[in-house]
Amino acid sequence: MAEISGVVERIWRYPVKSTGGERLDTVEVDGRGLAGDRLYAVRDGSGRLGSGKNTRRFRRMDGLLRLGSRLGPRLGAPQLLDPLGSPVEDADAFLRAYLEREDVALAREDAVPHFDQLPVSVLTTATLDWVRAAVPAAVVDERRFRPNILLRTPAGTPPFVEDTWFGREGRVRGGVRLAFVRSSERCAMTGLAQPGLPHAPEILRAITLAHDGRLDALATVARPGRLRVGDAMALA
């Protein structure tokens, strides 16, 4: 039997990977994820993508999180925003000057998805409230964790309730079905400074001690559809 787990409070899309995102009232969800999410990334001359960490696939590029990005209604090339929120006229030229690297440019996704792990991240207000209580001196909101969906959960919902969703589907009114798989493994990016949020490394320490550094529920798209703020999500 389906059970209501919460209501969609905010929807976030990140047109350029590792930059600040845009809040939406509604969005199409297709087999890839939220339409346009992480569709672009900052790519260097070796093909590695700008991120908050270094791996074989990603290159740490400090400062990306201070930038913003947004997409037009037709999902064309994204608009890059500088740290003050002003649109950038020439994204590639700006990035080269801002990052002090001559080999970077905006790149659209090709055969390999830009996602770190799975395409859709859902975070509950119950878990977010726990983070606020665990690190009361830090400025905390969901932007620290870059979810696609912030889900308002009923009073009394325990933190990390997302762990109980794995292997189940979340279904919303517009037909979207999300198949929950696992949680994100958090890195130093959770504490990096971004507009309105100062550097706060204690956030990652708290999550690591309490929950092995994991936070949210990651999902694949089991059925496309339209997602709207205010939609109830039921677990099946």
Score class of each variant (00 low, 15 high):
M1R: 14
I4T: 15
I4W: 05
S5I: 14
V7I: 13
V7Q: 09
I11P: 01
I11T: 00
I11D: 00
R13Q: 14
Y14K: 11
P15H: 03
P15R: 02
S18F: 04
G21L: 03
E22R: 09
V27E: 02
E28R: 08
V29H: 01
V29Y: 01
V29P: 00
V29G: 01
V29M: 00
G31F: 03
R32E: 14
A35L: 08
Y40I: 02
V42H: 03
R43K: 13
R43G: 05
G45Q: 01
R48G: 07
R48I: 05
L49G: 10
L49I: 11
L49C: 10
G50H: 10
F58V: 09
M61P: 07
D62N: 13
G63I: 13
R66E: 10
L67A: 07
G68D: 06
L71V: 11
D82R: 08
P83W: 08
L84D: 15
G85W: 06
V88A: 02
E89K: 04
A93F: 00
A93R: 00
L95N: 03
R96M: 09
E100W: 05
E100G: 12
R101A: 10
V104W: 02
A107R: 13
R108G: 14
E109N: 10
A111H: 12
H114W: 05
F115W: 12
D116N: 01
P119M: 11
S121G: 04
S121M: 10
V122G: 14
L123V: 03
L123Q: 06
T124H: 04
T125D: 03
A126K: 01
T127Q: 11
L128F: 04
D129T: 11
D129W: 04
A134T: 13
V135H: 12
A138C: 09
A138K: 08
R144K: 10
R144N: 11
F145M: 05
L150S: 01
L151N: 03
P154E: 07
P158L: 07
E169W: 09
R171T: 15
R171L: 15
G174Q: 12
G175S: 02
V176R: 00
A179E: 15
S183V: 06
A193W: 13
Q194F: 04
Q194K: 07
P195N: 02
P195E: 02
G196K: 07
L197E: 00
A200V: 02
E202T: 12
E202R: 11
I203M: 07
A206V: 05
I207P: 04
T208F: 08
H211A: 15
D212G: 15
A217F: 01
A217R: 03
A217V: 04
A217K: 01
A219Y: 03
A222K: 11
R223S: 14
G225F: 05
L227V: 10
R228Y: 07
R228E: 12
D231I: 03
A236S: 14
